[in-house]
């Protein structure tokens, strides 16, 4: 991997972040809604201050957040603050910064996504590889079929059916939320167990929703690799089926899947956020959604940018690490 290539990819990353921040900056500005006006009009309806006061408050808030400056100046200041990793403050929960909100909710999201993505990737690739392996027993190859049929169904719909059958009909697991009502979060064993119980259905729906995709692409890869000379050669050498499967077949078929994982990250995160919100878990999805409901626009931008940067950086990282997995690219 030449230094030039690394610099090229990093520049690309900067461009992606710039594009995302520019779009997120201009879209709300083009809309007729003024987030501050909306927010305080909402307050004015519920608790009493007169329309005259309202205008004064809006004017002073506009000055405070720099919304009365020319658009171009606002834009350059905004880009400047992003370059300093300053995402601003929440309008709704004022003293808190956007980073505070992200830090509070991120552990929930990361845990759920990490566990489900790893499990789904491993399970899907194994099942897919086995499904394309002619010497595997037929019952083992058949396991993959139901997952392939689920492929394409959005995880949030699977979540709904899991809720219906397991939580509503069989009453085995809770209907939603992060932990039982009335419990106070601490690090005790029973609390962690309670949280884990609440995470089973969200995790299952994300896993079932994504496994099929991996099975399908891995099966396709596996079929192509079987015809390769080196697999035939290994067979004629008399290597055991397991050795061929693991070292000659799986290892080669997995390479494009790693790229696939990098490309799928965006969808994984999006589905995760929607499922999280569906179950009422306190992750990034809930913060984003609460911000949308209350027009807390700096929080909306902050979270959108944070996720974009995370996804794009992971993509570039995988691309840069790829030569470690594939010796053939190291030379080129």
């Amino acid at each position: 991997m030449s230094a030039r290539r690394i610099i090229q990819r990093l520049l690309f990353l900067v461009l992606v972040v710039w594009a995302a921040s520019t779009i997120t900056f201009f879209i709300p500005r083009l809309s007729p809604k003024n987030p501050i006006r909306e927010r305080f009009a909402q307050l004015a309806r519920t608790g009493g201050f007169s329309p005259g006061d309202l205008e004064k408050i809006i004017a002073s808030m506009n000055t405070k957040f720099g919304l009365d400056k020319p658009l171009l100046q606002q834009y350059t200041e905004y880009i400047g603050s992003i370059a300093r990793f300053d995402l601003g403050v929440s309008l709704n929960q004022f003293p808190k910064t956007v980073w505070d909100l992200i830090a509070e909710s991120l552990p929930w999201t990361i845990t759920l996504l990490l566990v489900t993505t790893v499990l789904s990737f491993v399970l899907g690739n194994l099942l897919g590889a086995v499904a394309a392996w002619p010497r595997a027993p037929s019952w083992l190859r058949a396991i993959a079929t139901p997952f392939v049929l689920l492929q394409g169904v959005p995880p949030v719909l699977l979540a709904l059916f899991l809720l219906f059958f397991i939580a509503f009909r069989l009453k085995l697991l809770p209907l939603g939320s992060a932990y039982s009502t009335g419990r106070i979060p601490d690090w005790s064993f029973s609390f962690i167990l309670d949280v884990a119980r609440h995470q089973i259905l969200p995790a299952l729906s994300l896993i079932f929703g994504t496994v099929g995709g991996w099975v399908l692409s891995m099966r396709g890869m596996g079929v192509t690799i079987q015809g390769e000379d080196y697999v035939n050669f290994a067979e004629h050498k008399g290597l055991s089926g397991y050795t061929i499967f693991r070292n000659y077949y799986l290892r080669n078929a997995l390479l494009p899947q790693v790229t696939g994982l990098a490309l799928a990250l965006g969808n994984v995160v999006v589905s995760g956020i929607v499922v999280e919100q569906f179950f009422g878990l306190p992750g990034l999805g809930q913060v984003l959604f609460a911000a949308i409901q209350s027009n807390d626009f700096l929080v909306i931008y902050g979270i959108v940018l944070f996720i974009t940067i995370a996804v794009a950086s992971l993509m570039v990282l995988v691309e840069l690490l790829y030569p470690l997995l594939d010796p053939r690219i190291r030379e080129a």
Binding site: V16, A19, A20, I23, T24, I27, P28, L30, S31, K33, G266, N267, V269, V270, L288, I292, N295, I300, Y301, I303, V304, I307, T308, V311, A312, M315
Partner: peptide
């Protein structure tokens, strides 16, 4: 690489 859905959320939210 930008998750389009997030931008769609911003658009729909505005």
């Amino acid at each position: 690489p930008i998750p389009a859905f997030l931008l769609q959320v911003v658009i729909a939210g505005s």
